[in-house]
């Protein structure tokens, strides 16, 4: 059997709001294998943010099994969860979440600061390599306000790559970007995926989902569809088909 990066069985998450209990996730099961490119879709309130938080080890399930890279997360302490987040997961956020007035290079280094395995001297080298891999080698010393939205998101992608995680977790990474830049970012994701990166991509835009290999659709805390994408689009080609900018 192939090595699963994510393995979830009958996962539930309840929130207690005063007297009421809200069942955000009502028992979902799926696995993500190494090298997959999965989009998790759903309308707001479908439980997709909750699932994302759990996948990202920022939150814990109420019941059910969650294994990341064969490690069950259930009984880990706060600090052990932090270590998992650092080593196994690369986060990409809708609003980039770069530190202001801090250069791209330093922003990428931030992930390495919390990784004890990386020696101090190696950080700059690794961060520079990561930036190069997202095509920002000429922008390393720019601060976020000197970068466009797409470039900022590339910095964030570089930051998520720098610790060589088993899973890249993206939360509406293209949500703040125009179509052209979104396609650029998707092309980057496809490129990373072709190099073997496992990606879980949360979005509500079907237009973006078609660039992935598999779609999981959530509704009211249940998975209502989990299908491979037929003829996944090629973002790089789609980009060329877009009308030229004025």
């Amino acid at each position: 059997m192939e090595k699963s990066i994510i393995h979830i069985e009958n996962l539930k998450r309840d929130f207690i709001m005063g007297e009421e209990t809200v069942h955000a996730l009502k028992g979902i099961s799926f696995s993500i294998q190494k090298g997959e490119f999965v989009t998790i879709m759903g309308t707001s309130g479908s439980g997709k943010s909750t699932l994302l938080n759990i996948l990202g080890c920022l939150d814990r399930a109420s019941s059910g099994l969650y294994e990341i890279d064969q490690v069950p997360v259930k009984n880990l302490s706060r600090n052990e969860l932090a270590k998992i987040r650092n080593e196994k997961i690369g986060f990409i956020f809708q609003s980039y979440n770069l530190l202001p007035r801090t250069t791209a290079l330093e922003n990428v280094e931030l992930s390495l600061v919390y990784n004890k395995a990386v020696p101090f001297r190696e950080r700059k080298i690794r961060a520079a390599e990561a930036l190069k891999s997202v095509g920002l080698e000429t922008r390393m010393h720019h601060t976020p306000n000197q970068l466009s939205g797409g470039q900022q998101q590339r910095v964030a992608i570089a930051r998520s790559l720098v610790n060589d995680p088993v899973l890249i977790l993206s939360d509406e990474a293209t949500g703040n970007l125009d179509t052209r830049t979104s396609y650029e970012i998707m092309a980057l994701f496809q490129d990373l995926n072709s190099k073997g990166k496992t990606i879980a991509f949360v979005t509500h835009e079907p237009d973006i989902a078609r660039f992935s290999k598999r779609t999981i659709l959530l509704k009211d805390g249940h998975i209502i569809r989990d299908t491979p994408v037929e003829n996944p689009g090629n973002a790089a080609q789609a980009l060329k088909l877009l009308p030229k900018e004025e």
Partner: peptide, 16 residues
């Protein structure tokens, strides 16, 4: 606050 959240997401522990 957001910076704290980000640092935590990137693997910063409470003690850090």
């Amino acid at each position: 606050t957001r910076e704290v959240g980000l640092r935590m997401a990137l693997g910063g522990r409470g003690i850090d």
